[in-house]
Amino acid sequence: MRLPRAKTVSRAALFVLLCGAGAQAQGGKPGALPDKEFQAKFAYCRTCHGVNAQGFRGSFPMPRLAGQQPEYLKNQLTAFIERRRVNPVMGNVAHVLSPAMVEALTKAFHNLDPEPLGGAPKELVDAGKKIFEEGDPAVDLPPCASCHGPEAKGNDQIPRLAGQLNDYIIRKITNWDKERGQDVAKPDASSVMEPITHKLTPDQLAAVAAYVSTLR
C-alpha cells in the first residue's frame, strides 16, 4: 500500500526538479524568454555592431557594445523609444524589444570582451591620455576619468568608453545637442555631458577619442 504513494511523491519531486532544470536552461533570464529568440536577436544586433560587438565601420561608425554598462544600454534603448535620443535606425530597433530581451541583451553585451577595433591616429593618444586624466583646468574642463573611471570602464548610466570607436565618439560629441536630451520635459543623464561637449575643442576631442579607443 505504501509503494504507490511513494511513487506519487517521487513523481511530484521529479516534476518539480524538471521544472527547475527548465528554468536553469534559460540562463536565469526573467520573463521566460526562449533561448532561440534571444540568440536570433543577439546575432541581429551584431550584424551591425560587429561579430563580437567590438563595433563596426559601415556607412556610419556603429558603436562597440562589448563590455558596455548594462544600465547605460538600458537607458539608451529607452531613450531611443521615447525619442529623447534621436537615431532613425535605433528607434525602430529598440521599439520591439521586450523588457526581458533588454535585460538579456544588456547582460550578454556586458560580458563580451574582444580586442578594441582600433583605427585611431596613434600620434594623438598621448595628448588624449592627458586630457582624459587631467582635463583642462584653464577652461574648467573636468577630467573624463572622474566620471568614466580611470580605466574608462564607465559605471551605471555613465558609459564605458574603453575600446569605443574614435570616429563614433567624435560624431556623438559633435552632434550632442541634436541627438541627446531631445525631450525638454524629460531631462536625462545626457544633460550632465552637455556642457562638456561644448568645452572640448575639436583637437581635444580627436585626441581623447583616440586615447580611449585603444583601451581594453
Partner: peptide
C-alpha cells in the same frame, strides 16, 4: 529602416 520585429537589419547602416 530594416524590420526590427523580424531581425532584418537596416541596409542603410552599412551601404549608405
Amino acid at each position: 529602416n530594416g524590420v526590427a520585429v523580424d531581425n532584418v537589419a537596416a541596409c542603410i547602416a552599412c551601404h549608405g
